[in-house]
Design a protein around this nucleic acid. Structure first.
Lengths: 335, 335
DNA sequence: AGCTTGACGTGTATCGATACACATGGTAAT
DNA sequence: ATTACCATGTGTATCGATACACGTCAAGCT
């Protein structure tokens, strides 16, 4: 690759002039400018981003670390991120921590060693909290999304999961349900825990404490939901089946609904269902009904995270922010 | 952030010694080494990746440009990439061209300006070919996946789509079908075109030219498949409906099957279906039958791309390679 | 004793860009 | 005519690391 020096030599000027042309600065005569431009063309010159960033102490790139690049859950977040970043003339690069704490750590260090101006760390694993606390005092700007890190001074964008649960329960109560069961999402998932908590709080607030019952799922796949419900139905008599189930994740809800359908339950006549996430399209070929669910405004989450991060980058003195975004109830066919 | 110089000062030695410790080189006394390590600890020193890469002319990072990070199609590819990269002690960063040719170009330039050692460009848009041809003569190592760029000397990893079509048609013929229709995936999609071509070739080879009939879809969504089939059924009498449909993508097949079911067709008794891709899990709550399809070994595709790229990086003189990977027939319930 | 050898250490050039101080010359203002 | 000033241009330090040539000193060999 040609360097700035090659261009200068070819155009018969000093590096400084070439640099000025590159950055549209004044101080270049028209004649020189023409020769420099020509030289750049001929040599196919592209400035080396590394060298430039090294001296500018600025890359105009932000890094995003996700648990997985292949989780539909992140789709809207990613879109939000990308749009906002582009709007601000930055670039984003993504990488996936693959649900591995150490891998995540490696990437955070990589990003903070000059490669990016800041990072967005998306995480919901309980493990992550530690890793983040350790880095809270760094001067490297970053924003943590979804995972609330108690007692650490970090930028945080969160979904109000407890409020979401309240929406779900209140809606079911509106529909006349009292006996409302909760089937959690993934146990290791911080957000699931908060939804669970929210379920408990909402049930108490509605004076339905005696109906509280919870099944824990290890993961938030369809299979887990299917098995959880199936096992429950095998162990209980028909009249003990609740009037409604509030699932901590849409995925488990889909699985659960299949199990219910298999057992002859009609939805919503016999039992009502509410999910949480609204992260997957309601496809044509789904056997189950369209799901009433708590939608997370994930696009906004992504956009907001970028916004905060850029503020922090432009002015490191900006105090750390914590943004809580409220989810909303989307009523479809299952309630 | 502390620099190598700060560490040296604190330990009372020269930068060189610190650098040697950093890189596990010999030439450092035990006493100095201890002091240097201590200084690093205290200062939380992390070497600046930019500066290091600038002098080494090496980043140990490869960049991946996809059309979209949010397409299930890429999931296995991504996994293959990640595993292989990790195995080789490299890092990957991803970014999405968002189906926009210029955005892709920006990222290629970004990657080739020192930020990465090489790139993998995943693309199937017809537009991409141009962009790639233009860069074929660069010394920057890259591998193009899926998009065949005719007449350009580039590293290429491809799926043998024509062969896939042949598998599909031969299988249907085995099942006794003659009148086999083809519904394409996305029109702008290069791979779709090849599958279409493959369909034509396979039909001729089977002496079924008189049965050739094709419906083009603009995109490969479920909706497109649904509408295509629905429109066809409205315009044709029942006896004109073919014995089988070979879809250029699973997604369209799913949509099409819904339309067929709505119209009272039983699969596979009344009509047999074969798809292409096998990129999505056959979920529990799918209304439709499990799909017979042509599976693309996408994990392998990703892994192979990395392999070729790393060869190219380690030895730039390696001749450019073109790898064609054969897909395979997966027989499920629809044939 | 004289010499090689290796361990340990320092100083300086380098990667490819930007920033800044400074040198030149011509034109406008006094 | 003299000063001031701006446009144009050059040279050198700098960012944070590595590489390489070289200096010093003690141990081991003939």
């Amino acid at each position: 690759m040609a360097t700035i020096y090659d261009v200068a030599k070819r155009a018969g000027v000093s590096k400084t002039l070439v640099s000025r042309v590159l950055n549209n600065q004044s101080g270049v005569g028209p004649e020189s400018k023409k020769r420099i431009m020509a030289a750049m063309q001929e040599l196919q010159y592209k400035p080396n981003a590394l060298a430039r960033s090294l001296v500018l102490q600025r890359t105009n790139v932000i890094g995003v670390i996700l648990d997985s690049l292949t989780e539909p859950y992140f789709f809207d977040v990613i879109k939000g991120l990308e749009d906002k970043v582009k709007e601000n003339q930055f670039r984003v690069i993504f990488c996936s921590g693959r649900y591995d704490r150490r891998e995540k750590e490696t990437y955070i260090d990589f990003f903070s060693n000059g490669v990016t101006d800041g990072a967005i760390i998306y995480g919901s694993d309980l493990d992550d909290a530690d890793l983040i606390r350790k880095r809270a005092e760094m001067s490297f700007p970053f924003v943590v999304v979804e995972n609330e890190v108690e007692g650490a001074n970090v930028n945080n964008v969160l979904i109000d999961d407890m409020y979401g649960s309240q929406l779900a329960i209140d809606h079911l109560v509106d529909r006349g349900c009292k006996n409302i069961m909760h089937i959690t999402g993934a146990r290791r998932h911080k957000a699931s825990l908060r939804r669970w908590q929210g379920y408990l709080a909402a049930m108490e607030q509605q004076n339905l404490s005696q109906y509280i019952s919870v099944i824990e799922c290890e993961d938030f796949g369809e299979k887990e939901g299917y098995q959880a419900v199936k096992a429950f139905l095998q162990k209980h008599r028909r009249e003990d089946v609740p009037e409604a189930i509030y699932f901590g994740a849409d995925n488990t809800a889909f699985g659960g609904m299949v199990a219910l359908a298999d057992a002859g339950f009609r939805i919503p006549e016999d039992i009502r269902i509410v999910g949480f996430d609204d992260d997957k399209p309601q496809n044509l070929e789904r056997k189950v009904k369209k799901l009433t669910t708590i939608r997370q405004p994930l696009y906004q989450v992504g956009a907001k995270a970028v916004e905060i991060l850029l503020q922090q980058i432009h002015d490191p003195e900006t105090p750390r922010q914590k943004i809580v975004i409220k989810p909303e109830l989307v009523i479809r066919e299952t309630t």
